[in-house]
Computed example of a mutant assay.
Amino acid sequence: MLNSLLLTILICIIVCVIIMGIVWLWAKKINNAGVVDIFWSFNFPVIALLLLILADGFQTRKWLICGMVIIWGSRLGTHLGRRVIKHLHEEEGRYTQLRKEWAPKADQKFFTFFQAQGLSNVFLSVPFFIITQNKEPELSIFEFVGLGLWVIAILGEARADWQLDQFKKDPDNKGKLCDTGLWHYSRHPNYFFEWLIWISYFIFALGSPYGFLAIISPAIILYLLFKVTGIPATEEQSIRSKGELYVQYQQTTSAFFPWFKRK
């Protein structure tokens, strides 16, 4: 069983780093590193498909968790893809800033960055590896609770993305900040629901042996959102583009939790 799991992990690593290598070549050609976000999302459905084929756990459980991952990753990747493709030759501000900071070796550093993203796909998939190895023929309460929370979270994330898209489509909103719907209560409701999705995977994994180890995934996602590529980079770019308007928005809204509105 251990050898089979290690082989599965190794195959997932090889596939993800190859995908990210190809994506880096494309990004280098079009001078737009933002495409990495699209394929970081799509790599999770790829891993899920590999687990459907390679993992030897209970089939119903495998199909359930892999279906959840495929739906979530495909929706997120498609959403990001539409956004990036619209401005394919105009790199997002976060990556433009990195390109400046990493000059004159930006291409080499972006290659390392892309490969790290591919490895992170596999590392963050700890819950999926644990769950798809579970041969217990009955689903547990943890798995039903995890599924229920996942439904709420993915609908919330999709709602937040839709609200922002609708706001941006209105030409009257050019230069303005989206502060309607969920965005009225949180500066990053999409990030919040994204994290909640990872919490649902952790809860689902608790129904399997060693499922507690899956806590590493939502913990890392939370750290990345608050300290690395999520909120800090996004807000720095928003301040650069919106200035005082965004600073005022920061002062009246929660950075993360949608139900906490500042006075």
Score class of each variant (00 low, 15 high):
66 C>I: 07
117 Q>V: 11
17 V>Q: 01
39 F>H: 03
103 A>C: 08
76 L>F: 04
71 I>C: 09
56 D>L: 03
136 E>V: 13
133 Q>G: 11
141 I>S: 14
35 V>I: 15
83 R>C: 00
60 T>W: 11
42 F>W: 15
134 N>A: 03
17 V>A: 00
72 W>D: 00
103 A>G: 09
105 K>M: 13
25 L>Q: 14
99 R>G: 04
23 V>M: 11
19 I>Q: 10
34 G>S: 14
93 G>K: 06
134 N>V: 01
140 S>P: 05
67 G>V: 04
21 G>K: 05
51 L>T: 09
89 H>W: 02
53 I>N: 06
50 L>T: 07
31 N>I: 11
140 S>Q: 14
57 G>D: 03
86 K>F: 00
48 A>E: 04
50 L>M: 10
30 I>F: 03
42 F>R: 01
64 L>M: 14
117 Q>L: 13
110 F>G: 10
68 M>I: 13
125 S>N: 03
104 P>A: 06
116 A>V: 12
102 W>V: 08
133 Q>I: 04
87 H>C: 04
27 A>I: 10
115 Q>H: 05
25 L>C: 12
46 V>N: 06
40 W>K: 06
50 L>C: 07
85 I>P: 00
138 E>L: 13
134 N>Q: 03
78 T>N: 10
90 E>A: 11
123 F>I: 15
14 I>C: 09
126 V>M: 13
89 H>F: 05
77 G>W: 02
106 A>R: 06
143 E>A: 06
35 V>Y: 01
47 I>Y: 07
43 N>L: 10
17 V>R: 00
103 A>I: 02
